[in-house]
Computed example of a mutant assay.
Amino acid sequence: MITLSATHEDITVGVLADPPAADLRDLIDTHLHMPFPFGRNPHEAEAAAAVDAWLSAWGLTGEPGVAAMIARTRPARLASYNGPAMDAGLLRIVALQIAYQFVFDDRAEDVGGRSPGRLVPMLCESIAVLRDDRPPATPLGAALADLYRQVRERCTPGQAARWSWAGREYVHGLLYEAVAQAQPGLVRTGDCTSIRSLTAGVEPFYPLCEAARPDELSAAELHHPAVQRLRRLSADAAVWIPDLFSAVKEQRSGGLINLALAHQRAHRCSLQAAVLLAVRQINATIEEFQRLYAEVEPELSPAGIGYVEGMIGWIRGCYHWSRTVPRYADTVSVPAVPLAP
């Protein structure tokens, strides 16, 4: 039995690793429920080369810190793990979108950290591109416009419209995050998870999961209550898993919108105990996803099944990417059990 002491309570975990977990990554691996098998796309190297060329073509690699950030985050690896069966063309679009969102997110964090209001021009440009098809005024906006063009060329009009709508939700989430970071004392755990579901930018990829199949989902399947719930559960699990591995990095940089750190603030406990609380929440989410999918799968068409399998890819892929990517290497620097004071 491992008991991790908190200020107001003891958080006890009744599962021992054999051998015991050495560091925080081991602790996550020991307790996280991951029922979906690992996969990797054979076109990953091509996608990585395409990311480098695309970022360079739109002038983004030359901006301070971008090249180093891409080397640490490896967008093509995340795309490969999330979509192991995607064709090379679609994998390329997914990898470009991941790279774009990493650049956009880091820029928003830098600008919004100085003042949430400074984000407005940047966010408004994105909304104008995605909603009104207006010409961009910055290299980042031009990259988004080109990405939108590629999505429309590959996807059906309905899929492209869903991609655009989900992208706008992501943009709005970054403003909520900046406001929350400016007033951390007001942010509750529920607020954190709500904001995180937007800033993760997972749902914009689900229309691309649709596009991986030859047939488009029917409106009845797309809006089926069970499918909508599966979409929510999978997006939450897919973003909360990286929060486990990024908690050390976020804590050191003053980050706020992170599931593990939200539990740490709420329970006034150690980071290790907070991570385990977050793991419990993720496990419950994945288990609900599995139960619900088993119930609804007999009703789904092959396109519907493929769509849900794409959601599973994001849960599985985010786990394997997070535990190996250099961006979160600090996870292994923290012991599995808090050091005695």
Rank of each mutant, 00 (worst) to 15 (best):
Y328K: 10
L208T: 05
G185M: 12
H320I: 00
R25T: 07
V248I: 10
A160G: 09
N41E: 06
M311Q: 12
Y81K: 09
W165M: 13
G14F: 02
Y293T: 09
A266H: 11
P242W: 01
R268G: 14
I241E: 03
L244Q: 06
G14C: 04
I282V: 13
R327A: 02
H8A: 14
V325L: 04
N41P: 09
G317V: 05
E109I: 00
A226T: 03
E221Y: 08
A294S: 13
V239D: 14
L130K: 00
L217Q: 09
L217I: 02
P35C: 14
P184V: 02
Y148L: 15
V296R: 05
R232P: 00
A57T: 03
D106W: 02
E63S: 09
R40C: 06
R114H: 13
D26S: 12
S126Q: 10
S218W: 01
R107I: 03
A262Q: 05
L259Y: 02
R229T: 09
E153S: 07
C124V: 13
D191Q: 13
I70Y: 08
R265V: 07
E309K: 00
L96Y: 01
H33N: 08
A99N: 04
F38P: 05
W240V: 07
A79F: 03
V129F: 00
T73I: 06
D215H: 14
L27I: 01
V325K: 01
D105H: 03
A49V: 07
H43G: 11
R268K: 02
T73R: 15
G255E: 08
A247D: 05
R232L: 08
A88H: 10
G141S: 07
A303Q: 04
G185C: 03
L244M: 08
I28Y: 02
L91F: 06
C318L: 10
R231G: 12
P37A: 15
E153L: 12
T193D: 06
Q272H: 07
C269R: 07
Q264T: 04
S333L: 13
R323P: 02
Y328D: 07
T138D: 12
I98N: 04
Q181R: 15
L271S: 05
R265T: 10
P341I: 07
S322H: 07
S164P: 01
G112S: 11
R188P: 08
C155H: 04
D330W: 00
D132R: 11
L208A: 11
D23E: 09
R118S: 09
D26A: 15
L339W: 04
V129W: 04
D18N: 11
G112F: 01
Y293G: 07
I127F: 05
V334P: 02
R280L: 05
C155W: 01
E250L: 06
H263E: 14
A303N: 10
P139N: 03
C192V: 10
G158W: 03
P136T: 00
I315W: 09
G255I: 02
R196A: 06
D18T: 06
M34D: 04
A340V: 10
P341H: 14
V332F: 01
I28C: 11
I282C: 12
E63H: 08
V51A: 14
P37E: 15
V248P: 01
L339R: 07
D105F: 01
V187E: 05
A76Q: 12
I93G: 04
A182F: 07
R149Y: 02
G112R: 10
G65D: 00
A17D: 03
D23K: 00
V179D: 14
R77H: 11
G117N: 09
A262S: 15
L186N: 12
L186T: 11
